[in-house]
Amino acid sequence: MSQPDVLNQAFELGFTYTRSTGPVIGRFFTELRNRNIVGIKASDGRVVVPPMEYDPDTAEELSEFVEVGQQGEIVSFAWVKEPREAHPMDVPFAWAMIKLDGADVPMVHCIAAANESAVATGARVQVVWADETIGYITDIRCFELL
């Protein structure tokens, strides 16, 4: 008796739908793809980058976009001596809260630096763009010290 044929079906584990990022996050990502950075004005006028859909204090829907700079200042940082496999760099680097010029609220991203002593609170940094921008937060590959 011959071996019965094994039933076979290709299967890819993943979501079978795409999700719209909406008018606020979508706008931010579209701008990133074009190598621009935009924030949004919160209820109290503070410029929030990356933009939020709603004000966390008043719950007001936000819509007033503001273009911000591609340089900024380190508000705080953590020095990663031993990067993890999932981390964006495989050499020591810093995670940082960076307040971009024209923004009032810092954003979290990574900084490429030669060593820990090169990084300091208050130091100036600028965006390094990915070779190809596709509308992801990782279009900003990292920041580098000025």
Binding site: T21, I25, F29, P50, R84, A86, H87, P88, W95, M107, V108, H109, C110, Y136, I137, T138
Partner: peptide, 9 residues
Amino acid sequence: YYLAPQWVD
């Protein structure tokens, strides 16, 4: 959108 894709621990 902003943090999880960066794998900030």
